[in-house]
């Protein structure tokens, strides 16, 4: 079951890479949040650790409800619903993604052989999700999709923690959740600033800031 969640998570990461529309990215991000919450719940049910239940609830609240709502409002306010962009050809990006996945899987193989938890084989997938999100951030130009990439990366980290070590201590988890929330707010403000400055959210314009 946890394997299935892991696979779905990976699937969603790939879907994010191949998706061009910003709104659809938010949908995918939401789906990723749901999967993450479910998988945390599964781990909680499997191990009976109480803090995992909290963690699942927190994930659900933050990543399925709060963040998508914020992002959606942000996108509407910025008026970038239909913007489609990608720096590289999608197929090329996906092939690179595939190689990244192989790399992650290969890297995780010896580690997971040492681990004893029931969920050890998912470590590779978590790593792959992190790297894929990174890849997405690299290949995108628009600020909003970069933020989504950033959030997806955090999802990957969280999944790694949840599956490999049965979650981080509660306090740290809260801290990270808060951080993410604040980060999104700050970045939201940032977007407006960027747009006012350049009339666009295209990050290529930032290149003009460098000193000649």
């Amino acid at each position: 079951m946890i394997n299935l969640c892991a696979a779905v998570l990976l699937l969603l990461s790939f879907a994010m890479i191949s998706q061009r529309r910003t709104v659809a990215l938010v949908d995918l991000f939401t789906a990723q949040g749901v999967t993450l919450a479910v998988s945390t719940l599964v781990v909680a049910l499997g191990t009976g650790q109480r803090h995992m239940y909290y963690s699942a609830a927190l994930t659900f609240a933050l990543k399925v409800i709060v963040l998508p709502v914020i992002l959606r409002r942000l996108i509407r306010r910025l008026g970038v619903q239909w913007e489609a962009e990608s720096r590289l050809d999608v197929t090329v990006t996906m092939i690179i993604g595939l190689l990244v996945v192989i790399f992650a899987f290969g890297l995780a193989e010896p580690i997971s052989a040492l681990a004893t938890t029931v969920t050890r084989s998912t470590l590779g997938i978590a790593l792959a999700v992190v790297l894929l999100s990174f890849l997405m951030m690299i290949t995108r130009r628009k600020a909003v999709s970069q933020v989504i990439g950033f959030l997806a990366m955090e999802n990957g980290l969280f999944f790694a923690a949840a599956s490999a070590t049965y979650g981080m201590p509660m306090l740290i988890e809260f801290g990270i959740a808060l951080d993410v929330l604040v980060a999104v707010f700050v970045l939201g403000v940032f977007f407006f600033q960027i747009r006012e400055q350049f009339d666009s959210l295209d990050l290529q314009h930032l290149e003009s800031l460098k000193e000649k």
Partner: peptide, 10 residues
């Protein structure tokens, strides 16, 4: 052999 067992099937 790690890596090889995943790369070669490709």
């Amino acid at each position: 052999q790690p890596f090889i067992d995943m790369l070669v099937p490709l």
